[in-house]
Write a protein that binds this DNA or RNA. Sequence first.
DNA 1: TCATAAAGTGACCAATAGTCAGTAAGATAT
DNA 2: ATATCTTACTGACTATTGGTCACTTTATGA
Lengths: 221, 221
Amino acid sequence: MSVKERREQEKKHRREQIINAAEKVVFEKGIEHVRMDEVAEIAQVSKGTLYLYFKSKMELALAIHLRGLKILLKQIASELSKPGKGIELIQRMSRCFFEFAEEHPHYFKLFVYYETIGIDIMQDVMDTSTMAECNKIGDEVFYYIVRAVQVGIQDGTIENSFNPHNVALQIMGSTRGLVQVSQFYEQGIFISPALSEANVDIESMFDLYFKLIIKSLRPEK
Amino acid sequence: MSVKERREQEKKHRREQIINAAEKVVFEKGIEHVRMDEVAEIAQVSKGTLYLYFKSKMELALAIHLRGLKILLKQIASELSKPGKGIELIQRMSRCFFEFAEEHPHYFKLFVYYETIGIDIMQDVMDTSTMAECNKIGDEVFYYIVRAVQVGIQDGTIENSFNPHNVALQIMGSTRGLVQVSQFYEQGIFISPALSEANVDIESMFDLYFKLIIKSLRPEK
DNA sequence: TCATAAAGTGACCAATAGTCAGTAAGATAT
DNA sequence: ATATCTTACTGACTATTGGTCACTTTATGA
């Protein structure tokens, strides 16, 4: 058995080594400009070997994204283990996304890429374990939000006629949307002249966002 | 001059003919599976000709997207020409997005694709007239929202301490996000079992969305 | 009728994701 | 120690497809 186990370890190590190489190239050149030949070269492995460990280029890139997701989930889980009112949990969680975007811009870029890309492109990767792991983390994040909403309904910081699952979707959606808009803003596309005239910057966008979320969720008296 | 004019007309016509062909293929097979050879064949034109009228595959696809944008803008403009309180205008505009998604699913798919794709892929198309037109329409939509917010502040249906540009960004962002989430939902990815248990469907998502928007924007007494 | 310009063509090129027949390493059996 | 078998690895090769360009066709006008 020791032989089999060692093999297992070596395989895992090799896999990580390949992901490391791919990550390096992706972070340097952007996911659009990655060639599998280059990844193979940097991983000191032949191109064929890449395809022993990953079904396709897509799965390899997804494996990088998974690393980012794990960081994000860990952060969210850590924030939500601290005590607090439901509405505060929501706020902390949203803040996790924004902090993730700031602290891990490379992973975040992948995050945006994958969360927004059409699924048809993902089709060939749907049945991989990498995809399954990504989905699992997505689910976990969603349920953290649902639970936070439920807590808020219990402790009276969130309107109790709302459906927690539905509210969780709204929060995921609006966070996602704002994060995208802020990306556009940072990249200078998109009406930026008018916005700077109007004294709108990323900071004030997030401020207003939090304000609106809280106001929209609070109980009607 | 008549000759030159006729040429101009013929060119425009040829261009439309190519976009028609491309649209047919894109709508049939999805933008990812379109080959320029096939477009050329269907347009009854040689491949080289495609590149006389469009800088790249991207610009051709963008020209299809532009058609969708024009439909959407027209719809929004029409809704906003009718009188109403500011907050109602906002609501109508949001509804335009959702209706657009339902009535023009193909254009809408392109819409999601383009609004979320990284700009690095768009780089080669940035200096085209097609891109300029798309941006112009994007700006117009944005300013429609800004104006609606300003109207709302005037008529007392929207909290007057808010910055209209900032609010407009929030609305664009959350609408965009919800629209994406609803897409995921419809495509069956994404936690759908739990949601159907919790009686959440597209309809109820949009209901809650409107409710939250209105609540978050209304004036504090 | 011929010269010039504009529009159009399609064989060709370049880039690159993915394959597969063959090789190497090393474990296992004799 | 040798032969055999298994597993991992290799890299030349194929297939696909976006884009190019030297050449042909068509139309205009002198």
